[in-house]
């Protein structure tokens, strides 16, 4: 079928253990370029661990990751960032003492080339770079509709806005793959709608590939192209939203054991 195009990211046989506890057991799935891929599952299923494996925070005991045709068994978080991974966290991980603008520009830190000395005297490359990167950062700020808050210190902003700033910081890096860990947790319906709009806009406009963990099923079913379902560290389903929705094992994992009369 469409498997003629090799997937952008492939995970093969990933196993991750903490002591004797298996967080992930032999999980394989792939992510096509430009798609929105969701990972769902009940609490403790290993969804966040999966994201942490993908961008190098955890190193799996078994399995390999193939990104863009290159095979790696372990990759540091910084290598992941340089390769084009960006992410947001379940509990907001912003730089609380910095302004919105500083957070977003910090998201672009890998684009800065000036030496320490040039930065110290604010001369030449350092000065030019600062203005050029600022311009790029402003594009993201405009895209995320954060103009009013750009000079505000993050810790003074409400929760929903902080979530948005975190997405802005991730987008500022112009990532190839964006990992979103519950981007809509704790939001009201309106905020969720806005967040969906930002995520989909980024996917459609810039072609960003998105891997997303989310608990709100209606959101997941609406915006994702394909869904992986995890339960107790095992993969129990993988496929398009409608297939996943009708899958018996998924229903069992979410609703408990059901006796079907058949």
């Amino acid at each position: 079928m469409q498997n003629a195009i090799p997937p952008l990211l492939q995970l093969r046989g990933i196993s991750l253990r903490f002591g004797g506890v298996a967080a992930l057991a032999n999980i394989s799935f792939d992510v096509q370029e430009h798609e929105v891929r969701a990972i769902i599952g009940p609490n403790g299923a290993g969804k966040s661990s999966m994201l942490n494996v993908i961008n190098g925070i955890y190193c799996p005991q078994e399995g390999e990751i193939v990104f863009n045709g290159e095979k790696r068994t372990r990759m540091s978080t910084r290598m992941a960032a340089a390769a084009g991974f960006a992410r947001t966290f379940q509990n907001i991980a912003l730089f609380q003492g910095m302004t919105v603008l500083e957070n977003v520009v910090a998201g672009r830190n890998l684009k800065f080339k000036a030496s320490l000395l040039e930065q110290a005297v604010w001369f030449g490359r350092a000065r030019r770079e600062e203005a050029a990167q600022r311009e790029k950062a402003e594009e993201v700020i405009e895209f995320m509709e954060l103009e009013r808050y750009r000079k505000k210190v993050v810790s003074q902003l409400p929760y929903g806005l902080q979530k948005r700033v975190e997405l802005a910081r991730a987008l500022a890096a112009e990532p190839r793959i964006l990992l979103l860990d519950e981007p809509m947790a704790g939001m009201n319906a309106e905020e969720k709608r806005e967040m969906c709009r930002f995520i989909l806009n980024s996917n459609r406009r810039d072609g960003t590939t998105i891997i997303l963990i989310e608990h709100d099923m209606s959101v997941v079913m609406d915006i994702s192209d394909r869904i992986v379902v995890l339960d107790y560290g095992r993969k129990i389903a993988d496929g398009q939203p409608k297939c996943v929705r009708d899958n018996d094992e998924v229903i069992r994992a979410y609703l408990g054991r059901s006796e079907r009369v058949g």
Binding site: A81, A93, L94, Q96, N109, A173
Partner: peptide, 10 residues
């Protein structure tokens, strides 16, 4: 402010 996040952005 947040060293894990700092490392994740590179």
């Amino acid at each position: 402010d947040m060293d894990v996040a700092a490392e994740v952005i590179g």
